[in-house]
Computed example of a mutant assay.
Amino acid sequence: MKKRGQLTIFIILGIVFLAIITLFFIFNKNFILPTNDADINNVFLFQENCMNQIDVQTIFKISMQGGYYDIPKQSILYGIPYYAINGKNIMPAKEEIEEEISKAVKNQLISCTNNFTQFNNLKITSKEISTKVEINDEEILLEITYPISITKEESTTVLSKPKKVELPVRFGILYYTATDIVNNNLNKEICITCILEEIQSKNIAVDVIDYNNDTIIFVLTDEQSEIIENNIELTFAIKQ
């Protein structure tokens, strides 16, 4: 009687598990496993997980460093870059920041996947990662192509479908707000009151920090966009 009861419990648990898997695929129609082979699907899911993690981490780090992945020479403490020095605008173009994000995504994907060494029962060959990044006012669009070929026994499967990601962060609005602050305060004393009035309607908070006698740090915080449970911030400095 006891064994029959245990068997019934296992059957119920099996049905529940199958129901959960079925519901997952019903409500995630865009999520399709590439094959029926569990080993290859595990590689696919591992790669997907790396992509999902890196997108968020990359944007947060780059925004904190003023749009840079590699900290520029003209920067101060904690990698905060100068956007203007002695009346000259040296802030990065939006296209440069897109390139920085692209570079970061590639490097961190390589680090996360670690050349897929944990799948020692398969032969996995990676090709060059390509990324497209577009910074808009209300979101950042990424398209990542990370081609890999997986050989199991005598069969080879190629995974090369681009992954498109839309991150709902207002990086573009932060960037253009920073541009206005820099351009409006070149060759003159910085008007903090003017800056506060200008950004009030954008739901952006600004912290102004006196770094030293001739340098001011600005931290623009978008109070509408959250990544990694924090508001996204764009940090930069102006030297007069």
Rank of each mutant, 00 (worst) to 15 (best):
K3C: 01
K3D: 03
R4V: 04
G5A: 09
G5P: 01
Q6A: 07
Q6T: 05
L7G: 00
T8K: 06
T8Y: 04
F10K: 06
F10E: 13
I11R: 08
I11V: 12
L13M: 15
L13K: 06
G14Q: 00
I15M: 06
I15S: 04
V16A: 07
F17D: 02
L18R: 03
L18I: 14
A19S: 11
A19G: 10
I20K: 08
I21S: 11
I21R: 11
T22E: 06
T22Q: 12
F25K: 03
I26T: 12
I26Y: 11
F27A: 08
F27H: 07
F27D: 12
K29T: 08
N30L: 11
F31H: 07
I32V: 12
I32A: 12
L33W: 10
L33M: 10
P34Y: 05
T35R: 04
D37K: 04
D37N: 14
A38G: 02
D39F: 02
N42K: 12
N42S: 15
L45Q: 10
F46D: 02
F46I: 03
E48D: 09
E48R: 00
N49Q: 09
N49D: 11
C50R: 01
C50L: 04
C50T: 00
C50A: 05
C50F: 00
N52M: 05
I54A: 03
I54H: 02
Q57S: 02
Q57E: 01
T58A: 07
T58W: 00
I59P: 00
K61T: 07
K61I: 05
I62E: 00
S63L: 02
S63A: 15
S63Q: 03
S63M: 13
M64S: 08
M64Q: 05
M64T: 00
Q65F: 11
G67F: 07
Y69S: 05
I71D: 05
P72E: 04
K73F: 13
K73Y: 03
Q74K: 13
S75L: 08
I76A: 07
L77T: 14
L77W: 13
Y78R: 12
Y82Q: 08
A84G: 01
I85A: 10
I85W: 03
K88A: 11
I90D: 09
I90C: 07
M91Q: 07
A93L: 12
A93K: 13
A93I: 11
A93W: 05
E96C: 10
I97N: 09
E99S: 13
E100F: 10
I101V: 14
S102P: 06
S102R: 14
K103L: 15
K103M: 14
K103D: 09
K103N: 11
K106A: 11
N107L: 13
N107P: 06
N107W: 08
N107E: 15
Q108T: 04
Q108D: 15
Q108A: 09
L109H: 01
L109I: 12
L109E: 06
L109Y: 10
L109W: 04
C112M: 06
T113D: 05
T113S: 08
T113A: 06
